[in-house]
Amino acid sequence: MNNLFAILSGIPAIPLAKWINSFVAWLTGFAGFFNALTAGIGAILDAIQWVLDLFPAWLFIILILILTWFILRKTKHWGSMLFELLGLALIWNQGYWHDMTQTLTLVLATSLIIIVIGVPLGIWMAKSHTVNVIIRPILSFMQTMPAFVYLIPAVALFGIGMVPGVVASVIFSLPPIVSMTCLGIQQVPADLNEAAVSFGCTTWQKLFKVELPLAKATIISGINQGMMLALSMVVIASMIGTMGLGSLVYFAVGRNDAGAGFAAGIAIVILAIILDRLSEGLSGSNQNKKDN
């Protein structure tokens, strides 16, 4: 026993940190690739921000209310609309409107990217056992690793500003949408799969006519979770120069200004609740179609 301990303590520290550093350094070698990626993400951000800036605050609020009415009209949660009206008015009143749109841009861009990556990946995982076995531990790793850690390589590869914030948010909020998509597809009853094949569906027809429609509610709740995780990243991302409500909180910490911190924090909460209601309402509308 003592012997074993002696041997173990004799092993020098494995240079794990050094290895990872050289890996990141090696990645920076692909500057062209990362520059292109930065430009791409930047373009998405600019486009979303441009659209959001198109509307004055009052018009934006009205549009959100109309959208909510449209999504929730069957569930008749009129309280949500009242909440949105008051919440958004408060954000406007506090002078946080522009910061709110910046945060919204970050969340929407992140959501868009995780949907584009996450849904196909989830489908692939559901179909291939090998892919499932490989991806699943990576997802757990991505989600349990403290989110701060992603900031460091993100800065190294994507510089400072919104883009590395989006990249870190994407990594952090991708796992639920992948695993929920996979779950949704795998939950399709065996006899419905058989029915699809027995009536001569091709693989793609089966996917689009049977599997995705049936998995829709589960996938949307994965998107909803991803959105909430993205929102939880906004304060952290502000440490690397991502502007918005998060940076207001971050600056308030620096100035030891509890009031400003909470005011901005409340704005984040309001945004979170609105996004949650809306994305949940989307999956609910499917349910209603069945029940009416």
Partner: peptide
């Protein structure tokens, strides 16, 4: 046996 109709 269990009909296998598409619920949506």
């Amino acid at each position: 046996q269990d009909f296998a109709l598409l619920p949506n």
